[in-house]
């Protein structure tokens, strides 16, 4: 099994930390992982993206041009990465701020309104964990117990009091993700 994922959105949405938690979850179940961020000026408010690979085998290139799954959190990223999903692959997006919805018919498309859900839960910081929950519903490649362990490993200890909120957000994500277009 190899899963090649791009997570893309605005800086500050928790794109990089979501990728890190996913990668740590992979380590918890003995997988090979890589996490390759876009770095530089774009980290400070512009678009941010990270490529995460989970695999049972040694990982070759940590940088890719096509992906099994794209998790897209703003319009710029939709414009850039919709075409980069492999045929038969999966696109997950948050509808908030999206003016042009994905149109491809050869991939699975899911929508998760995580931004709206985070604000109605009164927990804007755990937006990315709602998205992660949605991803895990569609692609249950890492089990939830290992995600909890990965979360604990990647959050600094001073934030450990927020672990229950994060886990709650992941569970909420599992519930609210909706298929838009699926191949089967």
């Amino acid at each position: 099994m190899t899963e090649e994922i791009i997570i893309a959105g605005f800086g500050g949405q928790g794109v990089l930390s979501m990728g890190k938690i996913l990668a740590y979850s992979g380590i918890m179940q003995d997988q090979e992982v890589s996490w390759m961020p876009s770095y530089g000026p774009e980290m400070r408010g512009g678009t941010a993206n990270v490529t995460v690979i989970l695999s049972d085998e040694r990982i070759s290139s940590p940088i890719l041009t096509e992906y099994d799954t794209a998790i897209i959190l703003n319009q710029q990223s939709m414009d850039k990465f919709e075409e980069a999903v492999k045929p038969g692959g999966t696109l997950i997006y948050d509808g908030n701020g999206i003016s042009r919805h994905p149109e491809r018919k050869d991939i699975n498309i899911y929508r998760i309104d995580a931004a709206d859900e985070a604000s109605s839960m009164g927990l804007s910081k755990i937006f990315n964990m709602i998205v992660l929950g949605g991803y895990l519903k569609v692609k249950p490649l890492v089990n939830l117990k290992n995600v909890s362990l990965g979360l604990k490993k990647s959050l600094p200890e001073r934030y450990h009091h927020m672990l229950p909120d994060n886990e709650k957000a992941i569970k909420r994500g599992l519930e609210i993700i909706q298929p838009v277009h699926t191949l089967d």
């Binding site: 890190k20 090979e32 992982v33 890589s34 996490w35 390759m36 940088i63």
Partner: peptide, 10 residues
């Protein structure tokens, strides 16, 4: 290089 320096792996 910047890729190996910035990427995270196990």
């Amino acid at each position: 290089d910047g890729m190996i320096g910035q990427m995270m792996e196990k």
